[in-house]
Simulated assay, not measured.
Amino acid sequence: MLTVDFDRLGVQPGERLLDMGAGAGRHAFEAYRRGADVIALDQDTDELGKVREWFAAMKDAGEVPAGAEADVKEGDALALPFGDGEFDRIIAAEVLEHIPADIQAIAELVRVLRPGGTLAVSVPRWFPEIVNWKLSEEYHNNPGGHIRIYTEEELRDKVVKAGLVFDGKDYAHGLHSPYWWIKCAVGVRNDDHPLAKAYHKLLVWEIMKNPKALQLAGKVLDPLIGKSMVLYFHKPDAS
């Protein structure tokens, strides 16, 4: 399930796209399907191994346009292993809330984005996230967990000060916020709780089948309680 709107980001075939903090690769796979030349970057070598396997399987199955390329790269968000202006499009989805030195990470994203290129950054939205923190210490207080809750103004200000122009915002995954509120209330690791199990089945149905009823519910809930906030930016042309 995607968080970033690829049409709004402006992804085109043949463009070079970086998925920074790619995790299991959901955004990298969509970019590859659209014909972009994709680099999925992460620090988790096990995840990257699986992403590489999926890239190969997609190519073998004929799911990607001819000429599109995809690869993985292990790297640090604070020192991206790329030259200045290498990428046309960059996605940083649900990453910055984990990074203590987020201003340095943002500066690196700006550095490797070409003039005229676009960036999509998604983080947990303030209201759904603050509810989770109030309900459960375990939700965020663990190694590698969320270390901050962004307001829109804070995140936008940090990226604009790094040199980009703000283009707009969106919200996603409105159906997911109640699930995490339930999980935080009954115990983050308590997967067998009846209410958590029932809601999880609903989310699996959404992901696998995407029925119209849940599409409509998402359109209503995303602006109200969408779990993720997505901000879009572009880098001014050099001229």
Rank of each mutant, 00 (worst) to 15 (best):
residue 87 F to K: 02
residue 192 D to M: 10
residue 203 L to R: 04
residue 94 E to Q: 13
residue 224 L to K: 14
residue 155 L to S: 02
residue 93 A to H: 02
residue 221 L to M: 11
residue 109 L to Q: 06
residue 6 F to K: 05
residue 180 W to L: 05
residue 105 A to N: 09
residue 29 F to Y: 14
residue 58 M to R: 03
residue 181 W to P: 11
residue 121 V to K: 07
residue 195 L to M: 07
residue 156 R to S: 09
residue 206 E to A: 10
residue 20 M to N: 04
residue 26 R to D: 13
residue 163 G to P: 12
residue 88 D to I: 11
residue 173 H to R: 11
residue 157 D to S: 14
residue 208 M to C: 08
residue 84 D to R: 09
residue 123 V to M: 03
residue 162 A to F: 04
residue 3 T to D: 07
residue 45 T to E: 12
residue 220 V to Y: 06
residue 3 T to N: 08
residue 174 G to R: 00
residue 183 K to N: 06
residue 196 A to M: 10
residue 191 D to R: 15
residue 96 L to R: 09
residue 158 K to G: 09
residue 79 A to R: 04
residue 34 R to Y: 06
residue 166 F to I: 03
residue 69 E to M: 09
residue 106 I to R: 01
residue 167 D to M: 08
residue 108 E to K: 01
residue 221 L to R: 01
residue 167 D to N: 12
residue 224 L to W: 12
residue 92 A to S: 15
residue 169 K to S: 12
residue 44 D to L: 03
residue 140 H to C: 03
residue 222 D to I: 09
residue 128 P to S: 10
residue 73 K to D: 08
residue 21 G to I: 10
residue 46 D to F: 15
residue 144 G to R: 06
residue 191 D to G: 13
residue 96 L to K: 06
residue 113 L to A: 00
residue 27 H to S: 08
residue 141 N to W: 12
residue 212 K to N: 04
residue 229 M to V: 06
residue 156 R to M: 10
residue 41 L to A: 03
residue 178 P to E: 05
residue 152 E to F: 11
residue 231 L to I: 02
residue 217 A to P: 13
residue 151 T to A: 07
residue 131 V to G: 02
residue 42 D to Q: 04
residue 126 W to D: 14
residue 142 N to D: 11
residue 55 F to A: 01
residue 63 E to T: 10
residue 207 I to R: 06
residue 2 L to P: 13
residue 234 H to S: 12
residue 102 D to F: 15
residue 39 I to D: 11
residue 21 G to P: 00
residue 154 E to T: 14
residue 83 G to V: 11
residue 192 D to E: 15
residue 24 A to K: 13
residue 221 L to H: 01
residue 101 A to D: 13
residue 117 G to C: 02
residue 164 L to M: 15
residue 12 Q to K: 15
residue 65 P to Q: 14
residue 154 E to A: 13
residue 97 E to L: 00
residue 68 A to M: 02
residue 150 Y to T: 02
residue 19 D to T: 10
residue 106 I to W: 04
residue 179 Y to E: 05
residue 232 Y to E: 02
residue 201 K to Q: 14
residue 220 V to Q: 10
residue 142 N to C: 07
residue 114 R to D: 03
residue 120 A to R: 09
residue 41 L to C: 02
residue 130 I to E: 12
residue 117 G to P: 02
residue 30 E to H: 08
residue 95 V to Y: 02
residue 71 D to Q: 11
residue 138 E to Q: 13
residue 182 I to D: 07
residue 75 G to P: 03
residue 145 G to S: 04
residue 87 F to V: 08
residue 146 H to T: 09
residue 145 G to L: 06
residue 87 F to R: 01
residue 181 W to F: 05
residue 22 A to S: 15
residue 234 H to K: 07
residue 3 T to P: 01
residue 34 R to S: 01
residue 19 D to R: 09
residue 107 A to N: 15
residue 29 F to E: 03
residue 113 L to V: 01
residue 41 L to N: 01
residue 205 W to R: 15
residue 26 R to E: 13
residue 63 E to S: 11
residue 135 L to H: 00
residue 95 V to F: 04
residue 146 H to C: 05
residue 205 W to P: 12
residue 168 G to P: 07
residue 175 L to I: 14
residue 149 I to E: 04
residue 218 G to R: 08
residue 182 I to S: 09
residue 233 F to K: 06
residue 237 D to V: 05
residue 55 F to Y: 01
residue 116 G to Q: 02
residue 206 E to R: 12
residue 67 G to I: 06
residue 199 Y to M: 06
